[in-house]
Design a protein around this nucleic acid. Structure first.
Lengths: 129, 129
DNA sequence: ATAACTGCAAATCTTTTGCTTACAG
DNA sequence: CTGTAAGCAAAAGATTTGCAGTTAT
């Protein structure tokens, strides 16, 4: 793995936010001004293949771009607030159970799971009254 | 509602497949050759707002485009096979339960839910041996 | 040497927008 | 009349690709 790729991986892993390509590129350029958009895309493709990162759509809350996060030990759901744009994560044993059930009942071999929810977060509901 | 919009709605409702915009346009043009891509997009935006259709990504199995389906009474999950491209639907009480749990625990008001899975379908696993 | 990686620019694909004309309430 | 819808063409946004030069094995 090259230095540029290591840099990109590190940024994704260290970030608490979900990064889109433009943001990832911007951050990376602070440490390596020469890094190119194409390299970012190519690295992401690799990381996806190796299942080191997950790709998110986040209900396309802000254009059609994708967001990325380092794979965690536990799959989780993303809830995107259409009003304030906040992204919340949700982990639950029920989600794990559902996945297991899907595999058992359909024989499908799961490689990626994406559960995304769009709506209005609690705060916005209260503020919007 | 105009005739063109009714036509588009009818096509989406009657289709057993999940339609992308290009396909939807192609089908619509057989009945109204003048219909424009922009009209399709504008109609889809309306139908989404009114929650008459759901937008799917289907793990971007074939480019970045979206797919659409008429909303059914029951939310369901889509499983996309990376090998043969098949899309399978999966309905389960566990899914309903998970949604309810999410609402209760987070106070989030859900407007759209999308559970998509990518992997290898049973048939392809067997054929691929 | 050989194969993989990179930057750059151009191409592609999908979706959105501005503007003018046409239609519906 | 007045507002909404439609067609057209151009723009915008995100991602991919070809190619020539570079680096790593």
């Amino acid at each position: 793995m090259t230095a540029q790729r290591r840099l990109l991986v590190r940024i994704i892993q260290d970030s608490s936010r979900h990064l889109d390509v433009a943001t990832l590129l911007e951050i990376a350029r602070k440490q390596d001004a020469a890094i190119d958009r194409a390299t970012v895309y190519r690295t992401i493709a690799l990381l996806k293949e190796h299942r080191l990162i997950d790709e998110l759509d986040l209900m396309h809350i802000e254009g059609e771009k994708h967001y990325y996060e380092a794979k965690t030990s536990r799959d989780h759901c993303h809830m995107a607030c259409f009003r304030c744009g906040a992204i919340m994560e949700y982990v639950s044993p029920s989600f794990d159970r559902l996945k297991k059930e899907m595999v058992q009942q359909s024989g499908f071999q799961i490689r990626v799971v994406r559960l995304e929810v769009g709506g209005i977060c609690k705060r916005c509901q209260e503020n919007g009254k």
